[in-house]
Simulated scan of single mutants.
Amino acid sequence: MPRTADRTTRRQDELLDQLVELYLAEGFLRFGVGDLAARLRCSRSTLYLVAASKEQLVVAATRRFFRRAAERIEAEVQAEPDAGRRLEVYLRAVARELGPAGERFYADLAAFAPAAELYAENTRHAARRAQDLVAEGVADGSLRDVDPAFVGAAVAQLMRAIQAGAIADLTGLDDARAYEALADLLVHGLRRPGAR
């Protein structure tokens, strides 16, 4: 028989996953704790076991979303044996992970500083990871001989512009589609002629 603490932790994990789904689909600023309890069919006190306030619930769910997404993305990258394809795999996986997030979620992220900082932190990590993947592809000869630091800096600027909503404002592309477009740009610009 599971210990009470194990059951509580399992229930907290389930609620956190449900919060992530709800927030991605509908945003989070308009929900009070009572609204969340009703939507998730639990008590307020059960939600307060997950986090001590509405704001902390948002931060916990946002952190979980980005952490789980990063784990899935990295698993895809590690499964790709071709160093020249890893950057494409990475950016397309980022796009897929951001796909379920709706417009309201992004608007709420921008409006709530602690969640916006989590997104910015993940964007900085993604830019560093993209630079590393470019360097790996250049080193093994599968990508054109470019300066990985320059490409990484350019990618970082674009990622920050995506995260800040500037790309959406200029192009109408949501974050997921913007990452797809970035993948296309880099794949076609960096791949050696004749590479698959």
Rank of each mutant, 00 (worst) to 15 (best):
P2K: 12
T4A: 12
T8C: 09
T8W: 00
R10A: 15
R11H: 06
Q12V: 05
Q12C: 14
D13H: 10
E14R: 03
E14G: 04
L16V: 02
D17R: 10
Q18M: 08
Q18F: 01
L19P: 02
L19Y: 02
L19S: 06
V20K: 03
L22H: 01
Y23R: 05
Y23T: 09
L24M: 01
L24H: 05
A25K: 11
A25S: 13
E26Y: 04
L29H: 05
G32I: 00
G34S: 15
G34H: 12
L36R: 02
A37D: 05
A37R: 06
A37Y: 07
R39F: 01
R39C: 04
R39T: 10
C42R: 03
S43D: 10
R44E: 15
S45N: 13
Y48R: 09
K54V: 03
V58F: 15
V58S: 13
F66H: 15
F66R: 11
E71T: 09
E71R: 14
E74A: 11
A75Y: 07
E76P: 02
Q78W: 07
Q78H: 12
A79M: 11
E80K: 11
P81A: 13
D82R: 15
D82V: 14
R85H: 12
E88H: 08
Y90L: 08
V94I: 14
A95V: 00
A95C: 09
A95R: 06
R96C: 04
E97H: 04
E97K: 04
L98T: 04
L98P: 05
G99V: 00
G99K: 04
P100V: 12
A101H: 03
A101M: 01
G102H: 01
R104C: 00
Y106H: 15
A107E: 15
A107W: 01
A107D: 13
D108T: 03
A111L: 14
A113N: 10
A115I: 01
A120N: 05
T123K: 00
R124L: 10
A126I: 00
A127W: 03
R129H: 13
Q131R: 13
D132M: 05
L133T: 01
E136Y: 06
E136L: 09
G137L: 02
V138I: 02
D140G: 03
S142M: 04
S142H: 11
S142Q: 14
L143C: 03
R144Q: 14
D147F: 03
P148F: 06
A149M: 05
A149R: 10
G152F: 07
A153R: 13
A154W: 14
V155F: 11
A156K: 10
L158A: 15
R160M: 13
R160S: 15
I162L: 09
Q163W: 02
A166G: 06
I167A: 08
I167L: 11
I167E: 08
G172D: 07
L173V: 00
D174L: 06
R177F: 08
R177L: 11
R177P: 07
A178S: 14
A178T: 00
A181D: 05
L182A: 13
L182K: 06
L182V: 11
L185R: 07
L186N: 09
V187K: 13
R192Q: 14
R196A: 15
